[in-house]
Design a protein around this nucleic acid. Structure first.
Lengths: 262, 262
DNA sequence: ACGACTTTGTGCAAACGTTCACAAGGGCGT
DNA sequence: ACGCCCTTGTGAACGTTTGCACAAAGTCGT
């Protein structure tokens, strides 16, 4: 991840953590606008977005002073400002590579179009799928990646292929001029610097949940108390170095080696 | 998202950021094992996982001292240790609510089964879908959520429904005993404390990419005088040029077309 | 017009995360 | 057995993010 010099560019350098939350605020704001709510306080908006109100105010303060003290924020005005900051006042043509279940889900996802993302092309390499129609888009052959990218001036590519082809597809997208990639394939992509990659991994999220779920059962079996005691304890309680680290286990070789696919 | 009390449980308190990377390391380790590589250095593993090697070593050091100085890490042993830490040495039954494109993609996703996640039930409320077979699972009616959860001792639920039904489904899952939820619907879920929610939002990731892409072009054009001239406009929000003919134009349409039990 | 009340915007300190740099420790050749 | 070389594990410095608490700045009622 190439660090961006932030203030060296003339832009005030909005923290990455803030950027990641702006879309959440934006969605909450749209929901408010739908209900014809004209103004909103930081407390209300924070609650709708599921964050702390101080955090929300600090986040918004990075964009400028768009609130009115004693009143709150004008919903429509803030929608515009956040959209502009995120670059959503322009249309972003996007190519999606891979028209399996995931690619189809993406193509049908209303949240894209409503934020200015327009599907410029939907590609797949399976001849059985090429030519079929998905969400008003005719699936084109993956051989046309370069053409689709350059003819529409696409700068964002979505990879929804199996893991095995992801890097190859990525290379071609980058060569064709794509500089932002959203990767759903469970692999780490190698890209030249200057290309931005974000990863969405369905199974990683489950594994993180499993970790916490496991911990919960361990805790529950040792001390029966609901976990409300939020602020109770402080730092680590000594060194439990390794709770169950019996060395004797000869790493059971049942390592299921299975190619992960989408 | 609520802060996780990490060290409040009496366990060694592995940082959240580390937990989020363990699944990535695990995948890289599996790939190495597939190639019959017995040991790996922190440099190599870090490269495969796409992180800095110092970070990898520090992450692994939270689990214990499982490396050998001068040599590296034994791949199989480390696979076992990481799996155990993540709670993947046991099976996790999972219910998936919503059998649209996304639910189907999830059901067919090989990465779940290979990490110990077993689909206990796949539910939907659309009568046209109930009864059909998806990835060797017969889709059951959404009315049976409670039964599916309690009869299999499920503690992890996946919500792949449209936004409108997500909170309702969530409530029912929680009431039935689910304590970990993976949410794909673009809404902020309200859950009682003690329930762990993780969110995967397809459009948020794109918006973050758009921000960086925009910044890149702004920097390239080099003559943007920031946003001092902010007060002028008051654009309306209604019309976000949406040329594509996608169905849902409402700010927050669901992930898919079908509705799930309300 | 003015004071009471409300809410924003922000300085500050603590918590958290990352990176550097190097000592500790183990294998391997001789 | 010894010393060299390699890699781990970690203390310490640095940067980022969070949350508190409050002054600044506006509105509203009288």
């Amino acid at each position: 991840m190439p660090r961006r010099p932030a203030s060296a560019t003339g832009s005030p350098g909005i923290p990455e953590a803030t950027i990641a939350r702006l879309p959440v605020y934006l969605r909450a704001l749209y929901a408010l606008a739908d209900r014809s709510i004209a103004t909103v306080s930081s407390d209300e908006l924070a609650a709708a977005a599921g964050v702390n109100s101080a955090k929300l105010r600090k986040d918004l303060s990075h964009l400028g002073s768009y609130g009115t003290r004693g009143v709150g924020y004008d919903v429509e005005y803030l929608v515009y400002q956040v959209s502009r900051e995120l670059g959503l006042t322009q249309d972003w043509p996007v190519v999606i590579v891979g028209a399996g279940n995931l690619g189809r889900a993406l193509a049908n996802y209303g949240g894209f179009a409503s934020r200015g993302f327009r599907i410029a092309a939907l590609l797949d390499c399976d001849p059985a799928v090429v030519g079929t129609e998905i969400a008003q888009h005719t699936v084109r052959s993956a051989a046309e990646i370069e053409d689709a990218v350059s003819s529409h001036g696409v700068s964002i590519g979505v990879i929804a292929t199996p893991a095995a082809s992801a890097q190859h597809v990525c290379d071609r997208l980058v060569a064709a001029g794509v500089t932002s990639i959203l990767n759903f394939a469970p692999v780490v992509l190698n890209v030249p610097s200057g290309v931005d990659v974000r990863k969405v991994d369905l199974s990683i999220e489950l594994q993180i949940l499993a970790f916490h779920a496991q911990r919960r059962t361990v805790v529950a079996s040792s001390s029966e108390q609901s976990w409300q005691a939020r602020r109770a304890r402080r730092k680590t309680i000594g060194e439990f170095a390794d709770s169950g680290g019996a060395d004797g286990l000869d790493a059971d070789t049942g390592v299921e080696a299975q190619a992960v696919g989408t």
